[in-house]
Design a protein around this nucleic acid. Structure first.
Lengths: 225, 225
DNA sequence: ATTTGAATTCCACATTTGGGGTATTTTACG
DNA sequence: CGTAAAATACCCCAAATGTGGAATTCAAAT
């Protein structure tokens, strides 16, 4: 039971999908394009072995889905994605790569990739399913990729290394909250119905606890907490 | 060809998986637990209809996977996840909910859920597959959920609405950069080998362009640019 | 060749911050 | 009930910031 990626209802796609491949390994391109051509609903729209060529041609031919490698000879795949998806076209990018690390993963996602599949851990049939998934509005990912993506949302919950902010009192945190929304000391005082001098006292105590000397430093810490 | 979520190699799981269900709709619980019991490798470890009961029992019985609803009568499912996963235990949470909105999704992920499945769009078989996927280190998500998760990584790339920061000169941006690292005006001047007054002039111009009146406001804008 | 924008420097003045106190009232907890 | 922590408030002084104006240099564009 090979279960490919984040997909359901693959059979709902009826029209032909134009697929482009960007990949410098020609053997791999041949193999993949041959396999995908066999699928009745996929049409290979173009294969490119360099980034610049890809940018140019994809802009022109507007395929539905682009399978793209990150490690290209000239400009990186990430750059290709950025340049093309900036143009507001509807082409979707599915990254197909050997880079199984967070750096490349998140760069690609930020650039605008909708899916990220690690070569090797993935059969050609699964790639085919992933393409349909993209068309169908999905976001196909290799299994461990999905896990890592999910994990970036997890706040460092399980017993944090005890931040300096734990020492701050409710009131102190509250004041930082206001300050970090652009309120100055006087405004905070008004907002909390306490005296200006009291806010200043709290700020002094905050500085001591956070080991900083200015509002800006405190806010920067607070924001990155 | 029902293809369930972000999973591969489901058959690799051999041991029995202890599953708990937290869900206030009793009909749904019955249906689901019956169905899951049929699976040879799943053992229902407990069913709870309230958050507080769930926290208590799950802490004690430590199931492998918890299927959890978000909308519970007392404390929310998100809170349950937070409380339990803070204890550094190995129980994984798979959210099973009707809330198909970003707010609940990201709250759950931040709390520590590894998967998020929307009821209704998902068959019981797929839920079963998702459980194995979790055990196998995966992160099962409904298809459109995966898409939304991916999209949060996408920087607002396609032709931004022209930010105020476009008006800033190189030098001005450079100064903001330093300030946003905690440097005060004097330090910036030292660092850039220019006069203190010059930095102040630049700051004045920055304030005008950004329509702010304090360093903190400027930094906050800059940081969220 | 002239204009323009960017970067630079300086002055002056009012306000806000940063840092040092001290002191009273609330609140929380054993 | 007593005590400690938190929250409140005020004073002072030095330093930094916010705001106004003015002037010079330099490179790039018209």
């Amino acid at each position: 039971m090979p279960t490919p990626y984040t997909s359901t209802k693959v059979e709902s796609v009826q029209r032909t999908v134009d697929v482009a491949i960007v990949e410098d390994n020609k053997r791999y391109v041949n193999e993949l394009s041959l396999l995908l051509s066999n699928s009745p609903n996929i049409k290979i729209n173009g294969c490119y072995t360099s980034g610049s060529e890809a940018v140019e041609q994809i802009r022109k031919k507007k395929p539905d889905v682009v399978l793209i490698d990150i490690g290209l000879p000239d400009i990186s795949g990430v750059e290709v994605i950025k340049q093309i998806s900036n143009n507001g076209c509807s082409t979707e990018f599915l990254v197909l790569t050997v880079y199984d690390d967070d750096k490349h993963l998140f760069e690609a996602l930020q650039a605008g990739a909708v899916g990220y599949i690690v070569k090797g851990t993935t059969s050609p049939e699964e790639i085919e399913a992933a393409i349909f998934d993209v068309i169908d509005g999905g976001a196909p990912m290799s299994r461990d990729i999905a896990k890592r993506v999910i994990e970036t949302f997890r706040v460092n919950s399980s017993s944090q290394p005890k931040t300096k902010f734990d020492d701050l009192t409710k009131r102190e945190l509250q004041i930082l909250e206001y300050i970090s929304h652009g309120y100055n000391t006087r405004k905070v005082a008004e907002e909390l119905y306490i005296s200006y001098e009291t806010v200043r006292t709290h700020l002094k105590n905050i500085y001591q606890k956070l080991h900083v000397h200015t509002l800006v430093e405190a806010i920067l810490l607070f924001k990155s907490r």
